[in-house]
Design a protein around this nucleic acid. Structure first.
Lengths: 252, 252
DNA sequence: AATGGGTGTTGCGCACGATGCAACGACGAC
DNA sequence: GTCGTCGTTGCATCGTGCGCAACACCCATT
């Protein structure tokens, strides 16, 4: 570990609390003013700190730019995949990963069931948005007015007798999902198929993706599938941690 | 300027482009692996980089948190946001907010167009400084020598045939913008996209941010877009008023 | 199993670069 | 004008970051 860098980086959280002048920085670092000056200069050249008119330093907009660029290059799919495989290996069922984009929910990854009976779905295909567990999870994270706007615009096809019948029921379901932090689809899309899912969250807590485990009745009952819920949530949380770059891969 | 810190900080933009392993980092820094390792470790301890399961490095959660705080310190953004949304609701086009910092112009907020055809841009990304309407507005407010100094240092890429060709033309354009109090970009960055923008001023009259409305030719012509100018200016003025009112002159 | 190329990691001696000091310059207050 | 405060600069000294080389490890190949 490098002392110089260590000191320089310690300046950042310090400035996050508010602007500070050279003297304050030097004092709080426990170094000579000239040292603090050199460190600040270096940070300044990289745009991480900004010097305002009164000569005090504050965090620079470049930080924001960096973070923004990083999220854009972050690939949930790549990060999630090994976790999905692992989950599939321990329970054997089909695992899906989906994202919300432009008023649509899309599957972006899938690990096939190891049982002979498989459900039909396809990566890149829009999800049955009013009934799928992953869709509920993704929409539940939107703001209340957004949820309402989307819900009003949707069609509510009755795939089965247990499909979500209308906007009112859908919004109610979203509220439940939002509170409990997980979702199910019990025969809402195809009579004989059940799903249980959980959300993947980014560093800011917003839901960036959702995953689910699906299995047909002939393999496991809905009750049995629900016993997988803790496992599914743990997996989703692992992905969230890795996606958001949390240093401690420990408890939620 | 500190060499060690300089090297360490150079790693950040490198990782913003995507995950990289130790060897790649060392190579791109032009240092020995062991040196890169020590730097990465230090960054890691501060949570700025995260080590994923395949041992590659990425930007970490702490950086996102810092970026968040950095942007919260720019209180123009908070104040402006509702106004931008309102403007978007009344005209439907993409709305941007940008600031000037350290020889760069950065988008710090954006409200997406409600039309299906959208333009590409990204908050946090440096703006095409020689052509964008917001860039002209921000630079036009600098003092004459500052403007000249910046103009000389810039490159003038010809994104299109209507891009600003050189420093002379740019300075002339800045003078015009300065006098008229608004700016345009008519196909200067992308052939089919036009923008019209206006400045946000602080209590002392200085330009603290700039906003613009952008739309592609296929949706509205340049002439039609220009009819929005009064609306854009009114919005910018509203933001200026609110910002001047709430800005607390701690030590102006 | 044994081999070899590819990683990341460690210990070390040397020299370079970061450090603190002191002196200087620029402002503002009184 | 004189102080006091704050940022800045040049410099000698020493600490610390540096590259090297050897090591540990994984996995693919044979």
């Amino acid at each position: 570990m490098s002392q110089t860098v260590d000191r320089a980086l310690s300046i950042l959280p310090l400035l996050a609390q508010g602007p500070a002048d050279l003297g304050q920085v030097a004092e709080r670092l426990g170094v000579h003013k000239s040292t603090a000056l050199r460190l600040l200069r270096t940070l300044h050249e990289h745009g991480l700190v900004y010097r305002q008119q009164d000569q005090r330093y504050r965090l620079g907009a470049r930080l924001f730019a960096l973070a923004q660029e990083a999220v854009e290059n972050l690939d949930v799919r790549e990060i999630a995949h090994p976790h999905l495989v692992e989950l599939n290996e321990s329970c054997g069922h089909t695992v899906h990963l989906a994202v919300y984009e432009e008023q649509e929910v899309l599957y972006i990854d899938k690990v096939e069931s190891r049982y002979p009976v498989r459900m039909y779905s396809r990566i890149g295909k829009p999800v049955a948005i009013t009934v799928a567990a992953v869709a509920k999870l993704l929409l539940a994270d939107l703001s209340e007015p957004e949820r309402r706007a989307v819900a009003e615009k949707l069609d509510y096809p009755m795939y089965t007798s247990r499909s979500t019948p209308n906007a009112g029921a859908f919004l109610k379901e979203l509220t439940v999902v939002r509170e409990q932090g997980w979702a199910t689809d019990l025969g809402g899309h195809e009579e004989s198929i059940n799903c249980v899912g959980a959300p993947v969250r980014g560093a800011d807590g917003r839901v960036v993706a959702a995953m689910s485990v699906s299995a047909p009745n002939v393999v496991v009952t809905a009750e049995e599938l629900l016993t997988l819920l803790p496992l599914v949530r743990r997996t989703a949380d692992s992905i969230s941690r890795e996606y958001s770059g949390t240093t401690r891969p420990r408890k939620a």
